[in-house]
Design a protein around this nucleic acid. Structure first.
Lengths: 216, 216, 216, 216
DNA sequence: CATGAATGAGGTTTCATTCAT
DNA sequence: CATGAATGAAACCTCATTCAT
């Protein structure tokens, strides 16, 4: 075991520690975001919760903005992963779409923090991220369109769906699903007396229906 | 013209000035909100933009929260008015729904400020308003459901639409429309190569379609 | 009844109204002082409570400072009056001193607001009042020394008290009484287990004792 | 000198710097308090005078209140120390009481700042400190009673003083002394023509006299 | 590298006072 | 002469970020 090797060994261990710390920071930030909302996140708290020094945060991220950007990308990746898994578990295109719908709903419940967080950044017309960051984030965002896009294409291929522009429909569906998930926020006001789940399913069926070729 | 009359006259002018100032404050607040996001609004800025003194703002509103609440209610009322006008201009239920869709789209363009603003508050999971205010705001919010609700009911009555729960569908449609309007934000990224207007129309048709009784 | 007369009549009524308003302002200020402490008095509140307009306060007093100055003088006069009444109700010099002690104690309970208020201004080394005001206030302050001064002199005259410098002793006694009244503030801490009243009486007796000529 | 040692060394220096800063803040606060009164102290000023940044103050103290509380306790401790030293320098009980009197007078001159400060808080009827703080402060305050208490007890033990409740008399004397020191403020008004020192001594003798057993 | 003390800009709010009506 | 709307200075406090150790 020579010096070179040892250095590498140490380097590896170091890398591992650094990765863990990075993760700890993101986890703390995400947790705070969920608990306290967007303004309720201070670097000081992130440091405390992640067990790191205040200044240390800045060796891992250039600032609060970059932490948010990273969380955004993570969120998009997580959603994409969910959708990819979902579609691969079933075969018929309509089922794929249902799976995607279910998957998004589940995600918006289970990872509420992430979901609201994305919402905030997508909704906000304000320039939060500098151009360069924004581009990087968007790359991750676009990926989540693929599973739906492919499911629709598959349906067309199989002659089950109308010959529509698959990507266009994927966009519409995603927009709609996104809108529908928001209804949950109204559960205690406008939605009184209704089950959000039922609404959601109905909305998904409504979308599939509009794609399906009608036998006359 | 006696003293009494004069005093009244003066009183009227004063009232007008006060109304104008109130409006100036709200306008400034709305503008800032949209440009800089919720945290990007400071009372100092509102004062500067509205051309008033800092302390003056506090004699018109008890604080930032009340300003936001007022804007929310105004926005809801404006939308409701738009929708009500829209539905009354056509007669057939499907046309009414199209009119509503068009109306919302137009509103989201023309009063982008207000629309994004509402979006922000509906989207935001954070507790912004104290309970009492929230209730008052919700009352205004619920009104915008009515025109769509009635249009669907009318369609059912006429035998054009399936016998669905009208309110439930109204909710779904509104959620969807809301989601779709968001797509506009992606015009420069995911939507590249597509016309937002086309997507929007398609989405509306898709909704009407899912309601219509199919002749076989 | 000619115009001149009428004007005078009106002038009299006017004067009465003005006096009442002045009093209302002082009363409001005093009340607030008692309830909220020195910082808890705002001109706005004084206006509200006294039933006058905000700006009106400034036609009666040049500002907050003058209100305080007036209250100070009133307080001194009130104490003086109490003491004067007290000494005149008894005849023997020791009794007069006891009456003064009792009178001060009573005042410090009954007019707690005034008493604490004076305390604040006497204790405070800060220049609160401009020179001119200060002089005017001091004139009122000095008056409260007289009854005690005279009681001691009377005692000396009658051969009951030692031939001391009466004014000097009056000052010492007043200082002591003032110090003792402060003990009441410690009733819940240092004074636990003791009755403040007993302490007070004991202190007064102690003072009288030190004046009395001892029969051997 | 290894790394560990070095770190400790640095730590010590750091601690020293922090102590100095803490002191600087307290000193600035005390000075301002005396010059401008309680409301005349702003954190901004404290920062400026102590040569620190505004925010820095908040890393040493949680706020203005805590600064005041700290000053109070320091002042009590300082007085206690003075008294303890004073009584231990003489032996006969009357001399001890004289020593205490002299000590308090000296303190009120030498540490005028602290003395007036305490005065302010003792006099002020307003609730300045939250319960918990108040308790902590009171603990320090009560200590200053002990030397006087013990001196009186010693006198009783020796048969020089009457068999009075020693603590009760200690309280009375302290209250009186406190009151007498206030007379100094009147040096330019009511006290004109009198020497404050003489008054003070006379007052102390008067107290001792009232304790002494009279030989008939 | 990790640390956290120091910083000060910036936010909200209160309030004495002025002045046009 | 009474009024109260308008004003802005000044207070407190938080927090992202820097930088010496």
């Amino acid at each position: 075991m020579n010096a070179q090797h040892k250095r590498t060994e140490t380097g590896k261990r170091m890398q591992k520690v650094k990765d863990e710390r990075r993760r700890a920071i993101l986890e703390a930030a995400r947790g705070l975001l969920l608990k306290n909302g967007l303004d309720g996140v201070s670097i000081r708290q992130i440091a405390d919760i992640s067990g790191l020094g205040l200044g240390t945060i800045y060796s891992y991220f250039s600032g609060k903005t970059e932490i948010y950007a990273t969380l955004s990308m993570e969120a998009f990746d997580l959603i994409h992963e969910s959708l990819a898994t979902a579609v691969s578990s079933v075969t018929s295109p309509p089922e794929k779409i249902r799976a995607i719908g279910k998957s998004i709903l589940e995600f918006s419940v289970k990872h509420k923090a992430y979901f609201d967080f994305l919402d905030y950044f997508v909704s906000s017309s304000r320039r939060i991220f500098p151009m360069q960051m924004k581009s990087r984030i968007d790359k991750h965002g676009e990926k989540i369109l693929a599973p739906l896009h492919e499911a629709i294409e598959a349906g067309i291929e199989l002659g089950v769906f109308k010959r529509v522009d698959a990507k266009q429909y994927a966009l519409i569906f995603l927009g709609m699903l996104h809108g529908i998930t928001h209804l949950r926020k109204l559960q205690k006001t406008m939605l009184e007396g209704y089950r959000f789940d039922t609404l959601y399913d109905q909305a998904v069926e409504c979308m599939i229906d509009s794609l399906r070729i009608r036998q006359q």
